[in-house]
Write a protein that binds this DNA or RNA. Structure first.
Lengths: 210, 210
DNA sequence: GTCTATATACCGATAGAC
DNA sequence: GTCTATCGGTATATAGAC
């Protein structure tokens, strides 16, 4: 089993699927990008669907272990949450495949989402959910529905990262700046927003003025 | 000009584009769903791209005017923001085409997004951005990047609405409740989250305990 | 394992009769 | 305005030589 060839194919496939989606992806393009013959692609991986599933699960697994590691490296619930956001933003930016694919799957109601993938998504939620719940029980976080908050967090994060090209076009028309686009800056924005909210409370207002 | 035929085609196209995306959509399927001949589709609307653009802009325009109306009906910046979220959630739920299409466009970096659509997106941002800026200037909102906050808001909202089927599967695996799914409940969750954040401040903690 | 050549099917778009 | 028939191009997938 030539693992290097297979990996080259998976990387090329990931890029193409991210750019055009499953239906828009062309096997010829993936093969050319991977530097292999089209027949070799079928020999090493299989059909287009097999290729898609392989890309999905392998990418998700790498992201999952990254997030797992980052959670354990932080102390307080707030720090854990920020660590998750940082890792998520970094992973999503460095693996441009991941976010577009998830967004497309959500857009189709997860119709093509195999159980193995839902299982992995549940693992991520458990990580974030536990962080949220422990923060609530410790009196650090307000009580909100963990699953809905989790989806809100990841939704905001994914949109921020993936929207960069569109954001630039919108910004030019609206006559404003396109805003930050580095993973660190985007994660900081989401963390700031979700931890403290928009409203200026008396305590915060005092803090700002001091 | 038979407006009814054209509208039937646009409705069918909207459904198909939402389900499968631009590349995945089949003209034959759209024509059959609309109950018209394929040649008629080309006669009334034009090419596949023309069809896509028409669906996009007409749907977006209806949503834009809904949001415009809701903004004007509210007083304070916070109330305006909540009104936007409510309208957005309602429109997105009642037009199941809208959110999937936008999500797919963002996922592809807006490659198929015509300038007319970016223009409309900029209009929505101007509405939300002005609300945010006026809140900041009035001392009601903390200072954040308006465009990034706008994207975070819409991203969270869209993910919450569109993720419902996937959320149910994740919830079952994680052994938790799938959470709310009515537009009003989802809008309330996002509004609560973005206005007040997760962190319990001294002032809020006092409020909760009283 | 690797490549060429090709089968097979599908899809977007149109010509042309009525 | 409406339909049938079909063109031309392209896509996935494979057969078969080496």
């Amino acid at each position: 089993m030539n693992e290097t060839t297979r990996e080259r194919i998976l990387i090329a496939a990931a890029e193409t699927f991210a750019e055009t989606g499953f239906a828009g992806a062309r096997i010829d393009e993936i093969a050319e990008k991977a530097g292999v013959n089209k027949a070799m692609l079928y020999y090493h991986v299989g059909s287009k669907e097999d290729l898609y599933t392989a890309v999905l699960t392998e990418t998700f697994d790498r992201g999952l272990s990254s997030i797992r590691a980052s959670v354990e490296s932080a102390g307080t619930p707030a720090a854990k949450l920020q660590a998750i956001l940082n890792t998520f933003a970094h992973f999503g930016s460095e693996n441009p495949v991941f976010i577009p694919i998830v967004m497309r799957e959500i857009a189709s109601g997860g119709k093509h989402l195999p159980d193995e993938m839902v299982l992995r998504m549940a693992s991520v939620f458990r990580l974030v959910g536990d962080t949220l719940r422990s923060g609530m029980e410790a009196g650090a976080f307000r009580r909100t529905d963990p699953l809905l908050t989790h989806v809100s967090l990841t939704g905001a994060m994914m949109f921020l990262i993936a929207s960069h090209p569109v954001r630039q076009r919108v910004a030019r028309i609206a006559g404003v700046d396109a805003g930050a686009h580095t993973p660190a800056e985007l994660a900081a924005h989401v963390g700031n927003l979700f931890l403290h909210g928009l409203t200026i409370t008396p305590a915060k207002a005092k803090k700002v003025k001091s």
